[in-house]
Design a protein around this nucleic acid. Structure first.
Length: 406
DNA sequence: GAAGGGTGTCATGTG
DNA sequence: ACCACATGACACCCT
């Protein structure tokens, strides 16, 4: 069970919670806080023995200096104490963002940040007082004299010989049942041959999403999902949270101590990537993870582009439909106007026809019956009044002539 | 709780 | 054969 207790002489500035500065030094048992705040993946993280970064050198400089291998150095209790904690996996900014909006983290964030990269409590204080940090937690300068001493038991693997308050009765930590706690129990110096890498490898390639909780509860993937869930919860409270927005691959890379960001791994050229793989002495797992991260990252971008294209295609098609509908309406209107015009011409022609016949007279001066005769216009422009039956044959002849000309 | 949109991932097709 | 990219399908999450 994850437990963190401050030693008796531990003094933590608590004015950040708006308490009386005069009572700013307290002995605080953080067990409950951590039970409330740490999800199971955190417990895994704590096991990863992430290298201590006691200096605050720029990241690119650190990268030049080492490419951490997976060998788990937990034989040195001192190194465990400083290195095996959450802070080794997340940057100060990440932790700040992760915790700034969660009251449960108030107590531990100071300690975590102070432990990380040699941050002094003053620096931590400054971080939390940064503009934009909406934690709004003024920190008492008294903590410059605060001493931090952490006794962790269980998944953290710290063994300081100081028994912390019993917490087993508290049950699962964020869904972590006792059974799982057993698994996440760290091996003490001399016992631990089970490397972090080996354990991580189990879940790095496990993409099972649809396991039932009861089935998945014992899998590292479940811890990861719980972490994601926790992460999403934090994200809701903290929109600017870098840690909350961190992808799973980012997390995986951190877990395997790959000092390249996912963005770097994905965006570098093939040559650069291959050179990087060749130059750095990487374990099989690290290479595999790097390739997976690159593949997933590329595919993620491709999927985003694909969806964007699909969306644009749909929008274009909708626009086409709209244009075609407009065109259809226009053609309808034009067709209607033409029909009207044709009807008008027909009417005029009809009037003219009857007008002509009303004036026509045969040889005997009688009116010509329009039912028996028609006005025929020949191809040469001549106009005749001919019987209807002759007009039909004449029409056929004209049609034949036209077809021959074509 | 169902429905729909967004996203990440995998498998597979294609150039 | 290998690679990068495109895309359908699926699972998951969120609203």
């Amino acid at each position: 069970m994850l437990e963190v207790n401050l030693l008796e002489d531990t003094q933590v500035a608590t004015s950040s919670r708006g308490q009386d500065p005069s009572s700013s030094h307290h002995n605080i048992n953080l067990t409950q806080t951590l039970h409330n705040s740490f999800s199971p993946p955190d417990a895994i993280l704590l096991r990863t023995d992430y290298p201590t970064q006691l200096n605050s050198k720029p990241r690119h400089l650190q990268r030049q200096e080492f490419f951490p291998q997976s060998s788990t150095d937990i034989t040195n209790p001192e190194s465990q104490f400083h290195g095996s904690n959450l802070t080794g996996l997340f940057s100060a900014a990440d932790l700040r963002n992760l915790t700034a909006h969660d009251d449960n983290f108030d107590e531990i964030k100071l300690m975590s940040l102070a432990l990380e990269e040699g941050f002094s409590p003053i620096e931590v204080s400054q971080i939390f007082e940064e503009p934009g940090s909406d934690s709004g937690l003024p920190l008492n300068s008294n903590h410059s004299t605060t001493s931090y001493s952490v006794c962790c038991e269980g998944s953290v693997g710290y063994s300081s010989g100081i028994k912390s308050a019993p917490a087993h009765g508290l049950g699962a930590v964020g869904g972590l049942c006792q059974e799982n706690i057993k698994h996440s129990h760290v091996e003490y110096p001399g016992v631990a041959e089970c490397s972090t890498e080996a354990m991580l490898q189990q879940f790095l390639h496990n993409h099972t999403y649809n396991q039932l909780p009861t089935q998945a509860a014992s899998t590292p993937e479940y811890y990861q999902q719980m972490w994601m869930k926790k992460s999403n919860e934090v994200k809701e409270r903290c929109h600017n949270s870098i840690a909350a927005n961190r992808s799973r691959d980012e997390w995986r890379a951190k877990a395997l101590r790959i000092p390249f960001s996912v963005e770097e791994i994905v965006s570098m050229s093939v040559d650069s990537f291959n050179t990087m793989l060749a130059k750095n002495q990487l374990t099989e797992t690290q290479v595999s993870l790097l390739r997976d991260i690159r593949r997933r990252g590329k595919n993620k971008v491709a999927a985003q582009k694909c969806r964007k294209r699909k969306l644009n295609a749909i929008l274009n098609l909708e626009e086409d439909v709209c244009n075609l509908q407009t065109q259809k309406e226009s053609l309808k209107k034009e067709h209607s106007q033409c029909s009207k015009l044709i009807n008008q011409i027909k009417q005029k022609l009809n009037n003219l026809y009857h007008d002509i016949f009303s004036r026509l007279r045969d040889d005997q001066g009688r009116p010509v019956n329009p039912c028996q005769y028609v006005i025929h216009c020949s191809s040469n422009g001549s106009v005749f009044i001919i019987p209807k039956h002759l007009a039909k044959s004449e029409q056929k002849q004209d049609n034949r002539k036209e077809q021959k000309q074509k």
